[in-house]
């Protein structure tokens, strides 16, 4: 890899711009995605920026179990995002349709319609898990753009109370919570 490609790869990893799309979610995951940008978690430290237009975005964050109404919108928005791009499925809904399984208003899960790079499980996932997923997606995107790799979905580990040890940041967050309460 020459210098320019290395720089491009580094820049792609450090500047993930997100477009957030709701595919019929209960709004739980959407709130957590916004929470990851607030002062407590501050995803902007990684260069994350929530963009208003899919044309500006690198990473498409989709929440919800994909309702019939949302299918065409998701496909359109996926095509509007300019390459190289990645898709992050936030929450258990887009992965499995979760509690809404067997509903006749659904056309999920998400990977029947668009290729998904990273699944962030949880109902809803914690903001730390979402940030971790976005960082992973940025890494995948940069590598895939440089080496022309095929899409291989990654499932992130569960993060939060009850899954200690799954991720070091979960433990530290819990510690901080204890400190705040004390």
């Amino acid at each position: 890899m020459n210098l320019w490609n290395k720089l491009m790869c580094y820049s792609r990893r450090h500047s993930p711009w997100l477009f957030h799309m709701n595919g019929g979610s209960c709004n739980g995951c959407d709130i957590e995605l916004i929470a990851s940008l607030t002062p407590r978690y501050d995803a902007e430290q990684l260069g994350v920026r929530l963009e208003g237009s899919p044309r500006h975005a690198d990473i498409l964050c989709i929440t919800g179990p994909v309702t019939h109404n949302a299918v065409n919108a998701i496909k359109t928005v996926y095509d509007q995002v300019c390459g190289p791009k990645a898709v992050v499925a936030i929450g258990s809904c887009p992965a499995t349709t979760n509690v809404f399984i067997d509903s006749r208003t659904l056309d999920g899960p998400l990977n029947r319609h668009v290729p998904v790079d990273v699944f962030v499980p949880g109902c809803p996932p914690r903001p730390d898990a979402i940030i971790q997923g976005v960082a992973k997606a940025a890494e995948i995107l940069a590598e895939r753009a440089a080496k022309k790799l095929p899409i291989a979905p990654v499932v992130m580990p569960l993060v939060g109370p009850g899954c200690e040890g799954a991720c070091p940041c979960a433990a530290t967050t819990e510690l901080k919570n204890e400190e705040v309460r004390a």
């Binding site: 580094y10 500047s15 711009w17 260069g47």
Partner: peptide, 15 residues
């Protein structure tokens, strides 16, 4: 918040 790292606008531009 802490905010973006120093080189952020440059990385955004290159990307």
């Amino acid at each position: 918040r802490i905010g973006p790292p120093f080189m952020q606008p440059f990385f955004d531009f290159i990307k």
